[in-house]
Design a protein around this nucleic acid. Structure first.
Lengths: 173, 173
DNA sequence: CTCTTTTTTCAGTGAAAACTGAAAGCAATG
DNA sequence: CATTGCTTTCAGTTTTCACTGAAAAAAGAG
């Protein structure tokens, strides 16, 4: 691997580190966010060992988080012919990334929340006391809103890059 | 406090517990999410001691998270005249909640991310190697997207409940 | 100023999550 | 079927974060 300029290395390092920190603020573990940042800015796919080396992480840690990123659909495995080793490559198109994350968060967060709210609304359908009615209404309103958020996620997920941008321009222009 | 129906208590309990669990999946600590759920479904403002009792939490824990919710703008302090003690009351309007959360997450997550991306893009403005250019472009694209997300948050924050719903209907109808 | 009630802070503890490193598993190769 | 090269798993450890409880600070009340 040829030596890159010091500035580039420094910037990339900053990106990886800070992205990791930001990831923690979301509910994402630091290593996973760092690996993602690393792959997003890598000119070529990286092997587990290269990731381990660049982040000074253990094999187990690198492996688990790489596979988790693959599960999320943000990273894919590529193999070079005649080579046994797996390499990992991140989706670099920002809009595609966004769509993938939206889908996944919907599945993991919105759908379960809807379940809870439906169940709570359901259980209190028959309440007659003011408190009971208020609770029921509150659950319904939350359910309605969360369902709406889910629909937005679906619509977004169906958008192609170009149309999405046009839509955005109309919204904000 | 008068005895409520068992069904209502059960439903409310489920809501508080599950909301706490869901909160963890977001980057929100369990107690904070639970207190929020508790206050959202409470007919009247609650004191620190009442929160402590209902969630079996320590004073420090209850206190810290109540104040954190106040910081977020999701909960306000109310005082009864002639009483020294503070009571806490959650915003119950779902749309207002959403607007508050959007604003706050923008400030805490989008703005810092923008900072990182700008810095990284800036540092690599002058890169001439293919790798350097690719990195710079990647940072720019991310920055553009995150800035867009911020604008969306601003627009949403400015919407009134009614117009927001109309907008939503047009989007999904 | 002293007593009482409530809020706030914080050092110490505990639980949960992330991480390590080594062993086990698997697939290709001769 | 033994060997090599890589992947996967997991028991044990470290790190991080939430939480406790008690002490200190603040805010009335007399």
């Amino acid at each position: 691997m040829k030596a890159s300029t010091a500035t580039l290395d420094k910037a990339r390092d900053e990106f990886v580190t800070q992205w990791g920190a930001l990831g923690s603020a979301w509910g994402i573990n630091r290593t996973m966010a760092q690996i993602h940042a690393l792959l997003m800015t890598s000119p070529n796919p990286l092997s587990t060992d290269e990731v381990m080396e660049q982040l000074a992480a253990s094999r187990g840690n690198a492996h688990t988080n790489l596979k988790e990123l693959v599960n999320w659909g943000l990273v894919r495995i590529v193999t070079r012919k005649g080579e046994r080793r797996e390499y990992f490559e991140a989706e670099k198109d920002v809009w595609k990334m966004f769509v993938t994350i939206s889908k996944e968060r919907k599945r993991r967060e919105i759908d379960p929340a809807l379940g809870v709210l439906r169940s709570c609304a359901d259980q209190t359908k028959g309440e007659t006391s003011p408190a009971g009615k208020a609770f029921h209404t509150q659950m319904q309103e939350l359910e309605e809103f969360v369902a709406f958020a889910g629909k937005v996620a679906d619509v977004v997920a169906g958008m192609k890059h170009t149309s999405a941008l046009q839509w955005a321009m109309r919204l904000l222009g």
